[in-house]
Amino acid sequence: MSSKLGVNGTKRALAPPSPSPSNASNASHGTPSKRQKRADAANRIRDHATPTPAAAAAASQSTNFGGEMMTQLTYAVEFLKAKGEPKTFADILNHLTMQHHSEEMQSKFVKYLRRHHQINFLPETEPVPKSVPAWRHGKYEFRAKIPGVVDKTSLLQYLQNKTDASKLDVKDLKDGWPDCDQAIRELESIHKILVVRTKKDGHAKYIWRDQQELFNKVDPEFQVQWQRVKLPAPDDMNKKLISVGIKPASEDPQLKVKETTKGKQKRKPNRTTKKVTNTHMQHLLKDYSHLKRG
């Protein structure tokens, strides 16, 4: 420490230098600087936003579980559709190789099965041991778009019970009866169903019920002549029929009556009476032409 001579010649100790701001901020018990405060705030935000390893693992496991369940559920639907008969939950687990999964995962998968729109759950009809959990009971079967139609008899019965003349889509029929093509050909050959086929491949597309007793065989030569007749374009069909004195079936008679009635209606004349307000001048508006001298 440096010193200087006082007034009476004695040495006087100088005061120690004041600490700099950087030194003060680095003191263990000093007040932190603004830079240090900003750094601490940033660290707190980062620590709060970054999940802990346990939370990250739990989130990843939940995502993987949901994705795996959706995939396994698709395989389960295909399995039940291919078998065509009810299967137990154990059968489904063995097919999907999920029999070694935890009880918690299997019980959650049961909920997915029972809520799926293409799966029917069939409860147990016989007593089950109490040692078996309730969620393992029952069987599962594939739910087709047209349920119960799996042969020619059930197909004819389904068409008979229809309350309208709408078509039956073969694509929907194959959802529960994949190999129905041969049965469709047999029923069509004996005139029990009407079939519309694709022009390119000749595959059955739509089906209606037919009446076998109304079928009349047409001579092949007449069929050829019929096909040779050239029909007018759809836009000119009505004009052609009217020109030969035939009433088109597409013409609605009610519309014609409405048009005729509408044409006969006449517009009513406007007979509103105007109110006279200048009654005091009516004597000036009289006709005096008959008093005119010749």
Results as ranks from 00 to 15, higher is better:
Arg115Lys: 14
Lys139Tyr: 05
Ser289Leu: 06
Asp91Tyr: 02
Glu126Leu: 13
Lys268Arg: 14
Gly176Glu: 02
Ala27His: 11
Asp175Phe: 00
Ala134Leu: 15
Asp236Met: 09
Asp169Cys: 00
Lys274Arg: 15
Thr74Gln: 15
Lys262Gln: 09
Arg143Cys: 03
Pro51Tyr: 05
Gln265Phe: 05
Leu168Tyr: 02
His95Ser: 05
Arg209Phe: 00
Ala59Trp: 01
Glu126Ile: 09
Ala27Arg: 14
Thr198Ala: 11
Lys145Ser: 10
Ile246Asn: 02
Ala57Gln: 15
Thr261His: 08
Ala41Phe: 05
Gln254His: 11
Gln118Met: 11
Ala56Leu: 14
Lys292Leu: 08
Lys247Arg: 13
Ser28Cys: 06
Phe121Arg: 01
Gln99Trp: 06
Ile119Pro: 06
Leu93Val: 05
Ser189Gly: 10
Ser22Glu: 11
Gln211Val: 12
Lys258Met: 07
Ala41Gln: 13
His280Thr: 10
Ala27Ser: 12
Lys230Glu: 07
Phe222Arg: 01
Tyr140Glu: 02
Pro253Cys: 01
Asp219Gly: 02
Pro234Arg: 10
Glu188Cys: 05
Val224Ser: 01
Asp172Asn: 12
Pro32Phe: 01
His117Gly: 06
His48Val: 09
Ser25Asn: 05
Pro53Thr: 01
Gly176Ser: 03
His137Leu: 04
Thr88Lys: 10
Gly263Glu: 10
Asn64Ser: 14
Pro19Gln: 11
Ser131Lys: 15
Asn94His: 14
Lys258Val: 07
Glu85Leu: 14
Ala76Thr: 03
Cys180Arg: 00
His191Lys: 15
Gly67His: 13
Asn161Glu: 08
Gln61Asp: 08
Ala249Met: 09
Lys264Pro: 07
Arg185Asp: 08
Gln182His: 13
Ser18Gly: 12
Asp164Val: 02
Ala54His: 11
Tyr206Ser: 09
Ala183Asp: 05
His191Cys: 02
Gln182Pro: 09
Pro127Val: 04
Ala41Cys: 08
Asn278Phe: 04
Gln254Trp: 06
Asp151Met: 10
Phe79Ile: 04
Glu103Arg: 14
Arg185Ser: 10
Phe121Met: 05
Thr97Arg: 15
Met281Pro: 05
Ile45Asp: 06
Arg114Phe: 02
Gly138Cys: 04
Thr277Phe: 08
His101Ile: 00
Ala165Arg: 12
Ala39Gln: 14
Lys199Phe: 07
Thr163Trp: 00
Val110Pro: 00
Arg267Gln: 11
Leu284Arg: 14
Asp91His: 11
Gly202Thr: 06
Gln36Arg: 12
Leu5Trp: 03
Glu213Gln: 13
Lys264Phe: 07
Ala39Ser: 10
Ala90Ser: 13
Lys286Arg: 13
Lys256Asp: 00
Lys230Ala: 05
Trp135Tyr: 15
Ala90Lys: 15
Met98Gln: 04
Cys180Tyr: 00
Lys292His: 09
Ser289Ile: 01
Pro248Lys: 05
Lys192Gln: 12
Ser62Glu: 14
Asp175Tyr: 01
Thr198Val: 11
Gln160Gly: 09
Val196Trp: 10
Val132Asn: 06
Gln211Ser: 13
Thr261Asn: 13
Lys192Ile: 01
Ser20Asn: 10
His137Ala: 06
Asp210Gln: 12
Gln106Glu: 02
Pro32Asp: 03
Phe215Ser: 03
His100Pro: 07
Thr88Phe: 01
Val7Ser: 11
Arg46Asn: 12
Pro253Val: 01
Phe121Lys: 07
Asp210Cys: 08
Leu214Ser: 07
Leu173Lys: 02
Leu231Arg: 14
Arg267Glu: 07
Pro19Ile: 09
Lys258Glu: 06
